[in-house]
């Protein structure tokens, strides 16, 4: 349910980047969302619609790029996709895995016309 608050952050960023473009419309917003964030794509899309209404972003396409959860073993160096947040190394069964990716949450780019 915090996707409304996250999307408020997205629209703050959009406003910062489009202040000098008042005659233009935003046609596409691209977000990068890691697997280990608690942001649900459907909820982000619903929040996007609500925030976009009546702004130059209304009607824009929301693109969400998913980033898989990848971890590296601190003991044996195994690195790869981690299924279902099980941080047990498939190589040596140790528990010490550090995250390589999966916590991303940012606005990558905007398309304006």
């Amino acid at each position: 349910m915090h996707e409304m608050a996250l999307m408020a952050g997205v629209f703050d960023i959009i406003r910062q980047y489009t202040t000098d473009l008042s005659d233009k419309n935003v046609t596409r917003v691209t977000l990068v969302v890691g697997e280990m964030t608690n942001a649900v794509p459907e909820a982000l899309e619903a929040a996007f619609e609500v925030h976009a209404k009546g702004t130059p972003v209304e009607g824009a396409k929301l693109v969400i790029k998913d980033i898989p959860l990848v971890a590296r073993c601190r003991s044996c160096g195994w690195e790869g996709k981690t299924e279902k947040h099980v941080f047990m190394c498939p190589g040596c069964s140790s528990f010490g895995m550090e995250l390589i990716s999966g916590r991303e949450l940012y606005v990558e780019s905007l398309e304006v016309e």
Partner: peptide, 14 residues
């Protein structure tokens, strides 16, 4: 026109 942003959604909170 594409604008590169690469700004964290939670950056204001951070």
């Amino acid at each position: 026109m594409e604008i590169k942003v690469n700004t964290g959604i939670l950056s204001a909170n951070e």
